Simulated assay, not measured.
Amino acid sequence: MLNESELATLRNRFKKDAEFLMQTSTSGDEGEKSQKEKDAKPLPRFNRHSVFWIVASVGVTYYVDFLRNIMENEDIKSWWFNVGLILLVICLSLAMFCIVYLEWFKGIEHYDHEYPAIPPITTAAFIAASCSFNMALWPVWSFFTPLILFTQFMGVVMFISLLG
């Protein structure tokens, strides 16, 4: 076993080595970050991914006659559809509150730190709305309903990302 002085020497050596490693890794990270920041380019607004989802959404809207079916089809379960609409309005209202009021007017970029309950409530409202819409529209499109609604959702999200 090591005696007291050998143990102290070993401890000091590891402490010096650790300090040296921390100094070199910290200075290396700063140079690396600045180089990465210099090389970073903003992503282009129009990319294949966005265009694909927008075109797919327009195609699905046309092919399944989405808007006419929503307005005129009597097979839709209206109670589930109304619940989905209410939850979607809640979700969109919270999103608009965060984007328009908190970010644009108040200048709060990290609103999830100021109002930590908003992201989980918005997420829960959106998930519940999508489940409600799937239940309401299942009699119309059967097992294609989740695919149709997901395509519509992705098309809207990609279109909004092009606007901002």
Rank of each mutant, 00 (worst) to 15 (best):
I160Y: 08
C98Q: 08
F14E: 07
R13I: 12
S78K: 15
L21A: 14
T123W: 02
P44D: 04
V60C: 13
Y101W: 09
D65Y: 01
E37N: 12
C98K: 07
E32A: 13
E74L: 12
I127L: 08
E32Y: 11
M22H: 09
I148T: 03
L67S: 15
F81Q: 05
S50N: 15
A8V: 05
D65P: 02
L67F: 15
M96S: 07
F126Q: 06
D65L: 05
L163M: 14
G28S: 14
V140I: 06
G28R: 13
Y111M: 04
R45V: 05
N3P: 09
F126K: 11
N3Q: 09
L147R: 02
M135E: 08
I86G: 11
G31V: 08
K36Y: 05
L10I: 07
S161H: 12
K77E: 14
Q152C: 10
P146G: 09
A136D: 08
R11A: 07
D29G: 04
C91D: 02
P120V: 02
T9F: 07
E30M: 12
V55Y: 05
P42H: 03
V140A: 04
A124S: 07
S132V: 02
F159I: 03
F97T: 03
Y115N: 00
E114G: 01
V51N: 05
S5Y: 06
S50K: 13
R68N: 14
E37R: 15
R68Q: 14
F153P: 02
R13N: 06
P44W: 00
R68G: 14
L163A: 09
S161T: 12
A128M: 10
Q35L: 14
F46V: 15
Y62Q: 13
L7Q: 10
A125Q: 02
I70N: 11
I86M: 12
S93M: 02
V83P: 07
E4Q: 11
A56D: 11
A8L: 09
E72F: 09
P120K: 04
P116T: 00
V100H: 09
R13F: 04
V156G: 04
V100N: 05
T145G: 09
I108D: 03
E109C: 00
W104I: 04
F52K: 15
A129E: 01
Q23N: 11
M135G: 02
W104H: 05
Q23W: 04
A124V: 09
F126T: 09
M135T: 03
